Amino acid sequence: MRSERLQAFTDGVVAVIITIMVLEMHAPHDVTFQALVALWPIFMSYVLSYVYVGIYWSNHHHFAHLIREVTGGILWANLGLLFFLSLIPFTTAWAGEHGFAPVPTALYGVSLLTTALAWNVLQVAIVHAQGKQSVMKQALGSDWKSKISPLLYLAGIVLAFVAPVVSYLLYALVAALWIIPDRRVERFLKEFERN
């Protein structure tokens, strides 16, 4: 299988995930600004989750260009990633509805952590499929962001029971680290596409 089919399937699932998230946002029943302002936790959780889903989609798009052939291992790792991504709408809705409540904040962090771990599994599957001269491994380099992100998520999960606001700040920090695609990967991708 070529990577285009993997990309097309992932694009479809990501579109559904974003649609589900936006459908979870309901207009206030009252017509006042106070009623609208009361929904800010829901809106902010949606924005953060939208950014996360966008980051995964963007990075997946970049990495798919580094894959010539899709193996069974890559397919299953990709399905694992999509499974954990598909849980984000649920945890987003629960966390948004309950503001800074500890358990929803922690569960939101768990969904972000498991998605990050699934992303790492996908990277490993691609590197394994490509062998010793893995293009993916060369493009990733030291990949410090993939190593530090799970630690920040774990800290956010633990802190959710003490200082939930700090948890959200850590979750936002991880998103900020990833929002701009790694320039090394982009440069390597240009070289790879020329060959």
Rank of each mutant, 00 (worst) to 15 (best):
I126W: 00
V121R: 08
E69Q: 12
G131V: 06
P164M: 04
G96T: 01
E97G: 11
Y52S: 08
N59H: 13
E69M: 10
W57F: 12
V110I: 14
L113S: 01
A93R: 13
S149Q: 05
A163M: 12
A129H: 11
Y108S: 03
V158F: 14
G131R: 07
M136R: 10
T92H: 00
N78G: 07
G54R: 06
L159E: 01
F84M: 10
H128Y: 12
H65N: 13
I74R: 07
L122T: 05
L151K: 15
A118G: 02
Y52T: 09
L117N: 03
A139N: 10
S146V: 10
L66H: 03
L85W: 03
H98P: 02
T91S: 14
Q130K: 05
S167K: 00
G109D: 01
L154S: 11
L159A: 03
A163H: 05
I74C: 05
L122M: 09
Q130D: 07
F63E: 07
T114F: 15
Q130P: 04
S167Y: 00
G54H: 10
L151V: 13
I148Q: 04
H65V: 05
V70C: 09
R68K: 14
I157G: 02
W76D: 04
H128D: 15
Y50L: 12
Q133C: 07
L48Q: 04
G72H: 08
S142P: 08
G73N: 13
